[in-house]
Nucleic acid binder design. Structure first.
Lengths: 245, 245
DNA sequence: GCCGGAATGTGACCGCAATCACATATCCGC
DNA sequence: GCGGATATGTGATTGCGGTCACATTCCGGC
């Protein structure tokens, strides 16, 4: 079994070999499959790197296959004809992108844009489906992965659908982001690499509103912002804004 | 293979035997599995009927297993602590309910309420997971089912997140509902068995707003309502409200 | 056919947040 | 370190739609 090997890409990105199998998301997905399955997986997988701004796939495009994100971050979004955009999530390394579309055979339902130099493995739809047919265990893993995605997307939907004010949605967004990205040593502190515009698109609001409410939060000492670094000063205070649930 | 058999339930519901395997959703899910898989499926399945108002499962409850809806309709909803409710969809016969939670092992993410006398088959979580482990093909079918659910939920999310006005959301809702439930012979006509309150909960709006906008639609001759029967008089007119997309 | 509860219709009010229109401030490549 | 693009901050305005408070109508059960 090959161990992880790193080299340099043109974008100054760490290239990771054989990232199909495990480096991220311990004990998930395609780890612990029988050797012949892993062998087969390696054969049908091809790796590539993408510069900032590239698209792995675009909403509405017929599904070509799945991408396994090895390094970098990818923005998943959907947009309406009149230019409005809804950002679903920022994917982290280890995630499978384009899975529902590839499995169901329909078009990609979101657009995947590279927000920072990224490495990803690709498996074409036919190869992937054949692989799943042959290795039932893998199909079950895929079902689990889909269930997780489903529940994540669902939580997102709840946030947007069930909260009243933009202030509430923003508070929830910040708390969520914090709980996933914080390096806490006592206080919760993390990097928020999104622009106000993008935050607005995540919570279904407008750029100005995000700026204003964020200013509000600072004024009320709920949090502190320095560059892209955010520190929660009064987490309970923020949580109080989520009224109930 | 046993054919469909009907008897009478206490609720005056048609009881359908062996509905695991096929009656609805042609060529989907568990049809065309090898005989031993079908055999096994029959062993782990138990059937039950539910009166109006019953809950198959409740949001937050640890997953017990999946339900296969044989007859009747079930409302899937989620609600926040302060009493607001978001209805996700009304499930039709043939659907699998509670699948993501059962596969992922987390809690049910929605509540499933019976809105009319219903028959459903149940498979416990452990039985179901063992079954999938043993029959890889079935796991793949399940993955497909999950993909479909995902894409449906996603479309719902887009509707709520990307449209500006309540009027737009209502128009979209009516057109969607019409395209799924209409018995068209020239004009589009269908039964809308939901109260205004429920419609409001589906589009994330308020009861009064639904009443008002629906009245508006009637006034502008976009549609006609007689009891629970709705007839679209000017479909293009409604579609124009979806601005763009 | 009557009754009670649910569903629907309607007015008044008003607050949130979208939008427009700018003024700064910050970042990044050359 | 300069200059243009991009991001952020802020005021003024406005309308949508939520909420409250009722009136009216519908419907199902006895």
């Amino acid at each position: 079994m090959s161990s992880l090997v790193s080299t340099r890409s043109p974008y100054g990105l760490q290239i990771i070999d054989n990232c199909v199998a495990c480096p991220h998301r311990e004990a998930r997905l395609f780890c612990n499959l029988p050797p012949e399955a892993l062998q087969r997986l390696a054969e049908i997988t091809s790796s590539a790197t993408y510069p900032k701004g590239a698209s792995l796939f675009v909403e509405g495009q017929p599904a070509r296959g799945v991408f396994i994100l090895c390094a970098g971050h990818v923005k998943l979004s959907t947009s309406s004809a009149d230019g409005r955009t809804l950002i679903l999530r920022i994917s982290d390394p280890g995630e499978l992108l384009g899975l529902p579309a590839t499995i169901s055979g329909r078009a990609y339902e979101v657009t995947a844009d590279v927000v920072e130099p990224t490495q990803a493995n690709f498996i074409s739809q036919t190869d992937f489906l054949n692989f799943l047919k042959e290795f039932g265990e893998a199909a079950l893993r895929v079902a689990q992965e889909l269930s997780d995605s489903y529940q994540t997307a669902f939580a997102e939907m709840r946030t947007i659908g069930l909260s009243h004010s933009a202030r509430e949605k923003l508070a929830r967004f910040i708390l969520d982001w914090g709980s996933n990205h914080s390096s806490e040593n006592g206080t919760v502190k993390f990097n928020l690499t999104l622009t106000h515009e993008e935050i607005a698109q995540m919570i279904g609001s407008s750029r100005e509103t995000v700026t204003r409410i964020l200013g509000d939060f600072k004024k009320n000492n709920l949090l502190q912002v320095k560059g892209s670094s955010v520190t929660l000063k009064d987490k309970p205070g923020l949580e109080r804004l989520l009224q109930g649930n």
